[in-house]
Design a protein around this nucleic acid. Sequence first.
DNA 1: CCGGCGATTTATAACGATCTAAATTCGTCG
DNA 2: CGACGAATTTAGATCGTTATAAATCGCCGG
Lengths: 342, 342
Amino acid sequence: MNLRKNSTGRLTLNDVARAAGVSRATVSLVLRGSPLVHVDTRARVEAEMARLGYVYNRAAANLRRRVSSSVALVVNDLSNPFFAEFAAGVDEALAAAGYVTLLGSTGESPERQLAVVGSLIEHDPAAIILSPAEGSDAAALARAVGPRTPVLVFNRELAGSPWDFLGLDNRRGAHLATEHLLALGHRRIAFFGGHADSSSCRERRAGYADALRNVGIAVDDDWLIESAPTRMDAAARTGLLFAREPAPTAAVCYNDAVALGLMLGLVRRGRHPGRDFAVTGFDDIPEAILAAPPLTTIAADPRARGRQAAQLVLARVEGTAPEPQRTIAAVELVVRESCMPV
Amino acid sequence: MNLRKNSTGRLTLNDVARAAGVSRATVSLVLRGSPLVHVDTRARVEAEMARLGYVYNRAAANLRRRVSSSVALVVNDLSNPFFAEFAAGVDEALAAAGYVTLLGSTGESPERQLAVVGSLIEHDPAAIILSPAEGSDAAALARAVGPRTPVLVFNRELAGSPWDFLGLDNRRGAHLATEHLLALGHRRIAFFGGHADSSSCRERRAGYADALRNVGIAVDDDWLIESAPTRMDAAARTGLLFAREPAPTAAVCYNDAVALGLMLGLVRRGRHPGRDFAVTGFDDIPEAILAAPPLTTIAADPRARGRQAAQLVLARVEGTAPEPQRTIAAVELVVRESCMPV
DNA sequence: CCGGCGATTTATAACGATCTAAATTCGTCG
DNA sequence: CGACGAATTTAGATCGTTATAAATCGCCGG
């Protein structure tokens, strides 16, 4: 047995073994609660660990056992409360399952995203939960990830990726919002915000169009207005809604950020959201309830989505489902005060 | 040389070495860009790596080199935008320095916090950035962390801990807010919200008291009102401000969440924040600008604080400053529309 | 043609854990 | 009292990488 004193101060199995007068192997068995070790030995070893303040080195153990106890979470923007909540949910569920979360944020930059994934993958996560940046290159990502690490894509479809997907029922959500406005008597309803080339925007627009078609209203292309999915840009583009007479009386917004921006833009133009123009959002971020007036929106419960993502990815890690899975989470309409009847 | 085929599919240095017809050691040198290897050899090895899709196993390397390339971030509540921004800043700076972020969230529970720290520490982070849960037990934490991992405590003082600290200038912030109200002519000013036993609340109250004392106003204990630092609880306690005549005309709030809750509570009582009652916040969360009216508050720039925390902790990891450092970040008043003159 | 000296390359022992197979120890029974 | 099977313990190889020290190569001068 090698008894060389560990040169740095780091305590290892060896140190505990020596202190307790047993072999490394025995200490290892104690650590993992094996029934093989004699109860007295166990007690002695455990006492020694406590006395010395030993801490387990999971990296070394994982290396030997060829397993991983971490999952990487790559998120585009933590300062968006929707994703912050999602991240909290992911971490909560991973921690409960004994995994640790490796965090990476990309700031919506596909290049940074590639770098982040490349760095995280070197830490050998059991899986990756990826909420892709806009304009991600699926092939480049697949190359960076390699074939051995399962990935769950969240929220934005990644065209042509071989991975599991968890998304919201965007189509149905927008459908619900549009129906709500129709039921209030609105007939001139715009779809406001988002980038038309993102999958979630396309799906939401489709739900909106469905609902209109169901009641025999044609979609007016002038009322399909794009914007960056941010408050600022949405506020700036408010004017586009009123470029032509007759203007719409309501807008289904791409998401809450856009809706709040639109409300700001309306106020600046002297209009009163919820009184002379109806607005709906999507996501139900915490600000939605605080807005003036409180925003009617589509709730997606991002924290629950986070837990769900963690569960899906762990199922994939442990079991071996053969096919990539698509999971679509239900959403619901929460009515507040931003839509008046017409 | 051991040529046993790797049983799992995982590619290792060995596989690359074999494919390129060189030794493991050479491949390792190539990986680290050593000038020792011949340029032709390097090219051949690199080609082989690309062809096979080799990915570096940093855990194994770290084990051998006895270094760590991760930093743990333990945060009480990611769904609080202040901490979400902070986390984003931490991750941004750590990533730039080549470290990966291990995330742990505690949901404000000291027990979960202990468990989370215990789990993270097993992954051998180079350091821990800890935003402690309320009611943390410093001694228990110190035991869980052990003596070898540097810790930076953020935001809440941890009594009797031997660790570095990064905090906001709470005292000065509250002082600024109070002075602002005084300058607007207010004389009956309350301090609203927060738990009096938290260090940040005590400091903010002290700044508030200083400012009042400076103009010869005594602090009225009836106007020191506690609440949980949440919107809900703040809204519920609004009535306490008006228990006695004459009531205050303004309140310095513990933080933005409390201020927003208070504004909600005021509206419910038929008052108009910013018109017949002045309110200030603390933190400048994104909602602050959206509130009705937009909230005058103290900006702490949490993302910059996150970057700063990362930098401090890395400095500690790399250099060896002997003394624990206390760093207090400046804050500034941002005036919006929630305070009318009296 | 040998010795020597850079320039390259490599064998081998670590890092801190686990696993396998083999070696001990122990109680009991013939 | 020695044998035998069960209960415990352990030596040694191994995970994928790095560090050290030694080996090899090519080329030059003598």
